[in-house]
Design a protein around this nucleic acid. Structure first.
Length: 724
DNA sequence: GCTTAGGTTTTG
């Protein structure tokens, strides 16, 4: 029921009460009379109440009647507020915002219309009902641990809550409560409105809503944040979503994907061709359809043929599937993976079905481009190298078998991880564990030993976790991609090598001109040792005018490659956005802020050493470069049943036992890291089934002009030996 | 204005 604030100026309400309301004195209240248009005034106004005999009047000696108010009965409450003392600069008007009251789920009563908050424990994405409306069924739970299943109808799809996953948080206004089969049930009433929020601890509190006008204040923001923390350690929400690369036969899963093609199959089924950028490890079925029935971009369908999977949707889902736009991002809920062996084939294949009905939330949801999961998926899809996927044509379970012989092995491995801890401390073993709740309620800085579960982590794409760190100025920088380097090389190639700088006492130079139209001049300067050229694998060289490909080829043969350019009187390094040194697969970068590059001839001091080792750190030093270190930066959301906190990992090598400098160019290490993360936080698992992590964390304060925050960092912790 | 569905996997 709406509660409205009235501003009183000089004893009079600024906004008058509705004229049909008549003031009533408490003394004159009588049972059996109609009080619909009556009000009495105290510090607040109650209008449109029902009068009932107070059952406790005899005991408590209060008035023999009490008032019953409900939105359904058309009741309204007006509260008078005195005007605030306003500063001259402040506007004199006081806002008259409706004050909403939210009912906890354990205080719901039959026949009332209430406002409430809840965490989504289960939901059916909106589907077309057999009547005239869309329907969505949502089960909520709140810290009272009472569940409420709501059946929501609306002819306008947009008016239903935009729930994308279990754990989302909703605020419902004006939902009607009824009793059904001995339980409370929520159902849309006139004026129903909802807001939906991401349930992730620490995520921005931005409501998803279709209504243009809604109230949302600091108080509500706090409610959402509190519910997130409560849900993180009390509600069984599964972790990171499953990918096609992680599917297993004979199960149900939710898939976030992009629609590439669609086709009619027959009256009761419809085909969706989707991809998520990863490769299903099993052979997948292809549903035969007429070429002319297949909608989608032909070239793309062909390019992605090894990455798309066919999902056959049935019955009630057909109508919605038909209306989907090619290219849109979908979450398909409760897809069934079915193992089937086709006749005349030695190998069984995997089929994807979205069966008829809406049990277990089965259905299709369209995700907006603003959805964080969609943003992440888009970035990943853009990074997928299609040439690679063509080569992976026959990639199958054989590759999985290299690591785990079967699903059963993987299961037993995970089971072991649930009992023991998947991470161990490298120090402080004598310390006792502290609960997260205690840590959250304490001041920083402090250090703690904790035992917690990894609910989720960011970024999900592990290559995004690699950054460059300057230990001098403590800045973090993204690792530049090959394209940036290529542009710098192209820019440098515009200036031709200066022949005056060739063939000095400490290097020999060769130069040639490309045969193509560009007539590009390339110079390579081989550094000598003891007046002699060394073996290629021991040689450091400088290159001028080379392309990305040429520089890369040189790194394969020679120990060190330094891209340079000529000035009038010396050779110098390129812009520090480019690596100052390439060695093996690793590109070494310098900090733009902290470096003062020196001319290349400074290197001659190392060349003159007895046995030059060409250590990157030594090269950086003589060239005046402050080298950047590769580092993994990740955010772990940890929970332990008492609370949830975000802790950062800042790791060169110690935590994951993988050098951050090598992961970007090493497929094996990337797979190893993914496996490690899958063990720490198995995708698609419920909270109960997540393994425990033993961690050492420290809290620290971060203050700026605007606010003060406490951050947490994991340290002196490493992944357990048998997990690596 | 009323109905729709009312959580607990198809059997293609």
């Amino acid at each position: 029921m709406p509660v409205q604030l009235l501003k009183v100026i000089k004893g009079k309400s600024e906004i008058p009460l509705p004229s049909h309301l008549q003031k009533e004195d408490l003394k004159h209240l009588q049972e059996g009379l109609d009080h619909t248009n009556k009000y009495f005034q105290d510090t607040f106004v109650v209008a449109g109440f029902k009068l009932a005999k107070s059952p406790t009047a005899r005991e408590d000696g209060r008035h023999s009647c009490h008032l019953e108010v409900s939105e359904e009965a058309g009741s309204a409450i007006y509260i008078y507020t005195a005007p605030r003392t306003t500063a001259a600069s402040e506007t004199a008007s006081v806002s008259v915002a409706p004050k909403y009251v939210y009912t906890p789920l354990n205080h719901l009563k039959d026949g009332t219309i209430v406002n409430l908050y809840g965490v989504v424990k289960f939901f059916k994405p909106p589907y077309i009902s057999k009547g005239t409306d869309y329907c969505s069924v949502v089960t909520l739970v709140d810290p009272s641990n009472v569940k409420l299943t709501c059946t929501l109808f609306n002819g306008n799809l947009d008016a239903l809550p935009k729930i994308y996953k279990v754990g989302d948080i909703v605020r419902f206004h004006r939902i009607k409560i009824r009793e059904y089969n001995g339980q409370m049930q929520g159902i849309t009433s006139a004026g129903f409105a909802s807001l939906t929020f991401d349930g992730t601890v620490g995520a921005p509190v931005v409501p998803r809503t279709s209504s243009k006008v809604y109230t949302f204040m600091d108080e509500e923001q706090k409610t959402i944040e509190d519910l997130r923390v409560w849900a993180a350690s009390n509600l069984s929400i599964s972790g990171p979503a499953a990918k096609l690369s992680g599917v297993q036969p004979m199960l149900y899963f939710d898939l976030t994907c992009q629609l590439v093609g669609k086709a009619k199959v027959d009256g009761s089924s419809f085909l969706l061709k989707v991809w998520d950028g990863t490769k299903c490890p099993y052979p997948t079925w292809k549903v035969p359809v007429e070429a002319r029935d297949l909608e989608g971009e032909k070239v793309l369908l062909h390019q992605l043929r090894n990455l798309t999977v066919d999902i056959l949707v049935y019955d009630n889902h057909v109508q919605l599937a038909k209306s989907l736009k090619i290219g849109s991002f979908l979450r398909i809920y409760s897809i069934h993976t079915k193992q089937a062996s086709a006749e005349n084939e030695d190998f069984s294949h995997i089929e994807f079905h979205l069966h008829g009905g809406t049990c277990y939330g089965r259905g299709i949801g369209v995700l907006p481009e603003s959805n964080p999961d969609v943003k992440e998926l888009k970035t990943f899809l853009e990074s997928v190298d299609l040439a690679d996927s063509q080569n992976m044509e026959s990639m199958s379970s054989v590759e999985l078998d290299g690591t785990f012989n079967s699903v059963t092995d993987l299961e037993s491995h995970l089971k072991r991880c649930q009992q023991l801890s998947v991470t161990v401390l490298t120090d402080h073993q004598d310390l006792n564990n502290t609960e997260l709740k205690t840590i959250l309620n304490s001041t920083a800085p402090q250090q703690y030993r904790i035992r917690a579960k990894l609910r989720t982590y960011k970024p999900q794409k592990l290559y995004q976790s690699v950054k460059l760190h300057c230990s001098k100025c403590n800045s973090l920088r993204e690792v530049p991609d090959g394209g940036d380097f290529d542009l710098i090389l192209q820019g440098a190639a515009v200036t031709a090598p200066n022949p005056d700088l060739h063939n000095t006492s400490w290097y020999n130079s060769v130069m040639w001109t490309t045969q193509d139209q560009k007539q590009r001049k390339i110079a390579i300067h081989f550094v000598k040792h003891d007046e002699m050229l060394q073996q290629p694998e021991d040689t450091l060289l400088m290159v001028e005018g080379g392309t990305l490909k040429e520089v890369w080829k040189l790194t394969k043969r020679f120990k060190c490659v330094i891209p340079v350019r000529s000035t009038e009187d010396h050779l110098e390094l390129l812009d520090l956005s480019a690596p100052f040194l390439l060695q093996g697969n690793i590109k070494y970068y310098g900090c733009k802020q902290c470096s003062t590059p020196k001319p290349i001839k400074s290197l001659s001091s190392i060349a003159a050493e007895q046995r030059p080792s060409w250590e990157p750190s030594e090269i950086a030093q003589v060239l005046g470069i402050e080298p950047l270190q590769y580092v993994f930066v990740m955010r772990f959301t940890l929970v332990d049943g008492t609370g949830a906190l975000n802790a950062y990992i800042f790791d060169y090598e110690k935590f994951f036992q993988i050098p951050a400098s090598e992961i970007l160019t090493n497929n094996f290490l990337q797979e190893k890291m993914q496996m490690t993360m899958n063990t720490l936080c198995p995708p698609g698992r419920k909270l109960d089934d997540l393994p425990w992590l033993e961690c050492f964390i420290k809290s620290y304060n971060v203050r700026d002009a605007m606010k003060h925050q406490v951050y947490y960092q994991i340290f002196d912790t490493t992944v357990a030996e048998d997990v690596v």
